[in-house]
């Protein structure tokens, strides 16, 4: 039996054509091309549903600060890193190293900012419906106790823009559940990512909740088996070798 090959079949419907031109005009008429999404790549990945928070890969971060600017642009419509809920700290170890500070949307058991709020109910709280931190600007007194409670320094205050604390709301500014973190989208080195917390059933975020100082210390340790002082003053200077031994630290 000879199988008949249909050359000009429409891939979208049942119709067949003898001429290629007829197929083309059919495609243009019946199946117009859909506009391609005006995106480059990262935004097409859907953000995770459910519990999630913005995590950072410290060693990938180069300190460009675009994340902080994206944040201030989203929330206040201006470019100013100091209005942002995410921020970059620059350490000299003595090599320059940028460390990102993000809010890890702590689990219920450990959420010091909410616990420190003197207002009842707390003005800074975790919204169980939209799954991120929210600040109630009407009841907030601006006492900054939440800032002091947060070891990560993720709660920030800037009197130039607001009396209420700045804390990451996953870019859900309306608090209606539409979360699309701008910092994650813009990060050119993909050092920031939207971390799905439910994925492996592990609610703890202690690793990403370290303070920037602590993280810098760890980076320094990993690279420098010597003490920080001995790195800062290279050992070919005889003066510093003497000064170093006064501190009780011997150099290799």
């Amino acid at each position: 039996m000879v199988q008949e090959v249909v050359k000009n079949a429409c891939p979208y419907c049942e119709e067949q054509f003898r001429e290629l031109n007829a197929l083309k005009s059919h495609l243009e008429r019946a199946h117009p091309p859909k506009a391609a999404p005006p995106v480059w790549g990262r935004e097409v990945y859907p953000p995770p549903k459910g519990m999630a928070f913005i995590d950072s890969d410290v060693m990938k971060c180069v300190g460009c600060g675009l994340c902080a600017e994206a944040c201030s642009m989203k929330h206040f419509g201006v470019i100013n890193k100091d209005f942002a809920r995410i921020h970059i700290r620059k350490f000299l170890l003595p090599l320059p190293k940028a460390i990102i500070v993000t809010c890890s949307q702590c689990q219920d058991e450990e959420r010091p900012c909410e616990g420190a709020c003197p207002v009842d109910p707390p003005a800074i709280y975790f919204d169980k419906d939209t799954l991120h931190m929210v600040v109630n600007e009407e009841t907030c007194t601006g006492c900054a106790l939440c800032k002091e409670a947060c070891a990560t320094e993720a709660v920030r205050f800037n009197p130039d823009i607001s009396d209420a604390p700045l804390v990451c709301d996953l870019c859900d500014t309306e608090n209606n559940g539409k979360r699309e973190p701008q910092c994650v989208q813009i990060c050119p080195t993909t050092a920031l990512y939207f971390h799905n917390q439910d994925e492996r059933g592990r609610p703890l975020r202690d690793m990403s909740r370290r303070s920037a100082d602590e993280k810098a210390e760890m980076v320094a340790k990993r690279l420098y088996p010597l003490t920080r002082e001995s790195i800062a003053y290279p050992p070919w200077n005889p003066d510093t070798i003497q000064r170093g031994s006064e501190n009780g630290r011997d150099r290799i």
Binding site: M59, V62, C64, P94, K97, T189, L226, P234, W236
Partner: peptide, 27 residues
């Protein structure tokens, strides 16, 4: 050691080095 960039730059070109030798650390 890692890459380091300037504010606003998405193509960081500073590649600081670190080197630990028996006679000193260099960066």
């Amino acid at each position: 050691a890692w890459a380091d960039g300037c504010p606003g730059c998405a193509t960081p070109c500073f590649m600081p080095f670190f080197k630990n030798t028996p006679y000193g650390a260099f960066s």
